[in-house]
Design a protein around this nucleic acid. Structure first.
Lengths: 227, 227
DNA sequence: AACATTTTGGACACAATTGTCCAATTGGTC
DNA sequence: GACCAATTGGACAATTGTGTCCAAAATGTT
């Protein structure tokens, strides 16, 4: 039950990252260990339920080190969210670069892209925890919520909409409202993730391809250009 | 320490059956006031963050009354979830009775039904809080989670699937997998609720009809029987 | 080896919370 | 008015968590 997001990379990789271009005078190793552990504990316990001691224990550092490096609990939370926001956003846009803008076989290629999106972005523990964290604690950290909005849904949905509009313009799709189509595409893609989450089931990797093709098939039945 | 879900809860539950009131306030007895307040505070603050004092203050009762009527915090939480599960489930099935099984104008009538479902079931604060509560604290109360699963998604999705299969059998729809169609229908229906929730926006009542017709249109574009 | 910087663990004050006990008060009922 | 149950508020011990201080130890640098 107790797992660290990135396994146990925190032990000894001192030789490589010590002289990174980072502006941090402190070693990055413990800091990353703390942030990963904090992400776990915050996601599991919520903000109020996550104790600094639990985070310290899971990170394998002393409690004092957390205060030294990251200040108080509020700030720790903010840093965790902003770090994970960055990672998650980067993953999404890396996948988005593979969007099939001029496909030979639209359904096949869109299903492949959808599977990648599910795997690398929507299923990604980082992203899911982030969503849960922000959903749960957003009211308590308004400015944090703004950042998340701006870099999360605020950029992802328009990006998807733009690609769909591109496909429509190229004659593949028949779309009135690209924004709506993007939201519905994402909703269809997340259909079973959401369902599984509601019944407390962890979606197995083996079902991702089926989910992607189910969503793609329905989406294209609705939006593929008829001839 | 962990007792049965319906353990010593039976204090008043048989005495008063008239908690039908469609409107939120005006709880006749203190027990209902406590449960409503507790639902608010638990949903806002999470389990760990919700203090008994805060709940008592919002309910307008003394802290001791909560302990008298509902026992400790764990049990209070369980009772809150089970009460709201009942209400939410009842609302859903009341709407489900209006499903258009033999429509004259499928799109119009299905859109009307969808709007009712959004209004009475998916948008309902009770249901949304419940979902959030269970999602956040499900790991801490496994047996509670089982109950929620059984009376929540476990009954709702098959019920929707059955209605859709009925429509398909009657020649209105072209559906291979009714279960998948039901999940996708619900996903499309909740598209903008989910989006709004992600960007921290409270979906205004005025948009529900549009959301219902958007979802219905796309669903029927994908599943309406062609001829 | 000598130095600088982190890290550590333990102690501490302080605040919040839980759950209990109890005496006083309220409100309804006969 | 008298009785009875529910309610109230206050005090209480026990626990838990936050954030700080500090001296000893570990770690890395020159």
């Amino acid at each position: 039950m107790v797992k660290c997001l990135y396994g146990h990379v925190m032990k000894n990789s001192s030789a490589e990252l010590t002289h990174e271009a980072g502006t941090w005078p402190a070693p990055q190793n413990k800091r990353q260990a703390i942030l990963n552990a904090a992400a776990d504990v915050f996601a599991e316990q919520g903000f109020a339920g996550a104790s600094i001691d639990a985070i310290a224990a899971r990170a394998g550092v002393s409690r004092q080190t957390i205060y030294n490096q990251l200040g108080d609990k509020d700030n720790l939370f903010k840093v965790v969210v902003s770090e994970i926001t960055d990672r998650s956003s980067a993953g999404f846009f890396r996948v988005l670069d593979t969007f099939p803008v001029a496909p030979q076989d639209l359904e096949t290629e869109l299903a492949l892209f959808s599977a990648q999106l599910l795997r690398k972005a929507l299923c990604d523990p980082n992203g899911r925890w982030l969503r849960k964290l922000v959903e749960t604690e957003g009211a308590r950290f308004p400015e944090l919520f703004e950042t998340w909005k701006e870099y999360g849904p605020g950029k992802k949905y328009p990006a998807i909409a733009a690609r769909l509009a591109q496909l429509a313009h190229a004659g593949y799709l028949d779309i009135d409202d690209p924004g709506l189509a993007a939201r519905q595409y994402m909703a269809l893609l997340a259909t079973d993730l959401r369902y599984d989450q509601q019944i407390g089931r962890q979606t197995p990797e083996s079902e991702i391809d089926r989910m992607a093709s189910d969503a793609t098939r329905t989406f294209l039945r609705a939006f593929a250009r008829k001839r």
